[in-house]
Design a protein around this nucleic acid. Structure first.
Ligand SMILES: [Mn+2]
Ligand SMILES: [Mn+2]
Ligand SMILES: [Zn+2]
Ligand SMILES: [Zn+2]
Lengths: 137, 137
DNA sequence: CAATATATTAGAACAATTCTAAAGTGCTTT
DNA sequence: AAAGCACTTTAGAATTGTTCTAATATATTG
């Protein structure tokens, strides 16, 4: 598989050198079909399991912040406890399951007519996102 | 004006004694017609101006947390920098103005048919809220 | 005006994130 | 392949937002 090649190019395209640590982080974040939601803490645990050694927390933060700034991931805020990140950078909506603390994507096609009647003069809309909080019945 | 009377009762109804500090906080939060969005930091600055002495940060946090737990205010998360609070505890939507860092309410009647097609089996919906990020044109 | 229960406060503790600067690695040039 | 330089990683310090602690102050009750 030429994934590490791909990730190398991805990193270079972002002006980042393809180091061992960054390639491992890429594997966790991008080597999957499905969308991936994570916290820094969760990511570090995954990396620790994967590698049996740990990548320093500063490197994890630096890398994630670089990816965020490059537009390869985005930040999702839904409560004050944890900051979530999302490898799906398109404009989309979320279910947040309060029972499991899980985030689940959904898309424009899953809501009817999300059309604003209200407008703010002199402002342009950057994003419109719906957050649906759910819990066990 | 019998506002301090009202606030006294409000505090008692929440099982809180009406102290000087809590009454001052009530005035800032609730003695207004419009909805009020604030951060802890912003609230403390308002209180300091109003009083010329400061209420300790621990008291501000304790009081706001009590009000949150009693359902008198709610927490709004929109970025990882600051936690916002809202005296409007109804289910409603927000514009977040990235240029001014201001939060503006809007309501169900301001969106067309916010109706979900997607559903999660075994889960019940706690809230559906839209966040519209805007910035200067 | 006690006695007692609860609240306020400064500062300590804690957690998440960023900064610092020393040591290590990757890249370019030879 | 080695040298030199730029960039990266790291541990630990610093910073920030929040909660805890325990001593002092205030509110309530009798
Ligand atoms: Mn690997
Ligand atoms: Mn006053
Ligand atoms: Zn998502
Ligand atoms: Zn609001």
């Amino acid at each position: 598989m030429s994934n590490s090649r791909n990730f190398e190019e991805k990193l270079r395209s972002a002006g980042l050198r393809p180091t061992r640590q960054r390639l491992e982080i890429c594997e966790v974040l991008f080597d999957r079909k499905e969308t991936f939601h994570f916290t820094i803490d969760g990511l570090q645990k995954i990396l620790k399991n994967k590698l049996n050694t740990k990548i320093s927390i500063a490197t994890v933060y630096n890398t994630i912040n670089s990816f965020k700034n490059k537009g390869y991931i985005k930040e999702i805020s839904l409560n004050s406890e944890k900051t979530y990140f999302d490898t799906n950078v398109t404009n989309h909506h979320h279910f947040y399951d309060e029972t499991t603390s899980e985030l689940i994507d959904f898309h424009d096609s899953d809501v009817e007519h999300l059309q604003l009647r209200k407008n703010l003069p002199g402002k342009k809309i950057k994003s419109i996102e719906v957050l649906v909080k759910v819990a066990n019945k």
